[in-house]
Design a protein around this nucleic acid. Structure first.
Lengths: 197, 197, 197, 197
DNA sequence: CATGAATGAGCTTTCATTCAT
DNA sequence: CATGAATGAAAGCTCATTCAT
């Protein structure tokens, strides 16, 4: 049955079915919402319920939790990664660029209940997630760090991966405590990088 | 209630009390040992098994996990708290004292598998634990902070509670990753406190 | 519905039918292959995947698993059924013919991972399957049995249906254990039919 | 000496608590009953429900399904095993003893829905079960087989393990079909062992 | 008081089957 | 007709917590 008279999907070899696409969107929205309130380890059943789908649907779209988490946050992570070089150019100094970029990351993380915790998990199931964040963000951070070090603004004995982890850690629990300002503490951390004059 | 137990013991001369006390010691040792290997959220059953007692016994002595954790670490927390004033006197500057004292805290936390994470938990059951740490350590930290601020060494817009939380956060997950040096990052944080010259 | 398909095909000359038939063939091949490796209870999805079709297609062609199994093995079952009379003629004695025919059946069953087990299933869904095997093979077996009984070679108090079930049972699990030789045991069973002299 | 497990319990250091013992009995009864109707792979939840206990109770008493199955059938298996030597002495010939003993086994198995199937399972979880049956029954069968072979009554090329499996297989499904008489078929099998005169 | 048995909610994951596309 | 997305009922297993002994 090759009649191409049906509403042809937008160009592409195997376009996702409309309902599937809709569902995936619904799913991601539901997951994102639940992640905010219950953390990224929210029960699959709850996510499914919130999305109004069966649990199987989640597993079809995202076989592992890591994949779901990545999908939920991909856009924001990508945006963050891409912002790095631009900030380097538009900022007065590399150290300032670093601070701004880190703030972007903090703004992202602060609302991701439990994400930072899961990034520390030694559970094998989260390796993919771990790797994704590392792959995308550490190089960017490294670039900024190197620029600042090259400019003599900061110490050069801190690894990007370590700094990122520190920043990540400082964001843990920042969403459910108005007395805790992760951004301010991260500011301290970044300030601490400065080479002592 | 706090001192009552001791007195009742002397007066009543009930041998059971000695048993109970011995049990409690055994329990704390077992819990401490298991916390090291399995984290502070180790299954109650495992702790009981290690102590050679029934699970009920644990609940009798420590109705909530928070209480057990506090009991296990009380000595070390007290020691840390008490070290504050001494360090203030023996250190060249208040900021140096702060740094040393914070290092003490980091050294404590980093070896307590999962403790830092639990301190961030929004689980109501851990409120007591949270409060205990705050009560004991924040004033000490505040004292050091104030001294450093008074000496003009650091900014004065950082609260002790917030700083403690930041330090605690930086320690999360530091035990199972040799590539992550919480102490170095905390050092950055403390360095970041310095008033820019 | 049973004969309609064939006629409609010849009359209407609808090319779609050719597609469908090809599909059915593909399906049966895939199912047969998967049955060998994963047993006759292999997941529908796996079969569909192997055939390169959707799961719905399988249900369209074979609404129940029993029907699929029957379709997959029909040729071999028919061949087995048809071999009975021939063997009766070509064998030295009816009992020998029976033995040979039974061996044919054993050889068939033993390679059909899980088929023997499913033949014993009390799951209503397999009634059709059960009935099919009975309908096709029991009469043949009965014929051989009667001939042997008439020749005075064997006891006459065993029903063909029962014997077939026994043989079927002996084949269960014969595929995944090299230490178990269903054929030898079946040989014992057939030998046991002999009238004691 | 056996000196009674029951008595040892009263005397021994750690007697099982009365409620636990009662529960275990209830559990075994419930499991046995459910095994009859739903097979030995009946859902843990169903067994628990039938016994009126929580699922956890089952796992406490019998961490693996194999252990539960063994416990349910232990008495009968032991009785069967122990009957072997006695039958050898009390029967007119070793072959007769073998037949009688096999009948005992058949009577046992015929009501154990799904047991035979599970004994064939290649699932690692059932290794223990498999081993238990083999350990207890195959030697007994082997003894009878050897005696009969030594007496020249039967062929000597059949292994006890294989014979037991054959008998086991013949019993599959015998409980839910009044038209299928496993005992008669097994009789055939045993008769087939006879050395042809 | 101590014990540890019992409870049962809660989580993940699989798959037969239906039905929108 | 074919497709494969969605469904949701199972099922196994863990562990905090209660409570009979």
């Amino acid at each position: 049955m090759k009649e191409g008279d049906e509403n042809a999907e937008q160009a592409g070899a195997r376009p996702k079915r409309a309902d599937a696409r809709r569902n995936e969107k619904t799913l991601l929205d539901a997951a994102a919402a639940l992640f905010v309130t219950s953390g990224v380890e929210a029960p699959v059943r709850d996510i499914a319920a919130k999305a109004g789908v069966g649990t199987g649907t989640i597993y079809r779209h995202f076989p592992t939790r890591a994949e779901l988490i990545i999908a939920v946050y991909r856009h924001q992570v990508e945006a963050c990664a891409e912002a790095g070089p631009a900030l380097l150019e538009s900022s007065p100094t590399p150290h300032a660029a670093l601070g701004r970029w880190i703030n972007l990351f903090v703004d992202f993380l602060v609302t991701k209940h439990g994400l930072a915790a899961v990034l520390r998990s030694d559970n094998a199931g989260f390796d993919t997630l771990h790797a994704y964040f590392l792959d995308r963000l550490v190089p960017v951070c490294g670039q900024l760090l190197e620029a600042a070090a090259a400019a003599g603004e900061i110490r050069s004995d801190i690894e990007a991966a370590e700094l990122m982890r520190g920043v990540g850690n400082l964001c843990i629990g920042a969403d459910h405590d108005p007395d805790y300002d992760a951004r301010r503490l991260v500011g301290l951390l970044i300030a601490g990088l400065r080479r002592l004059l």
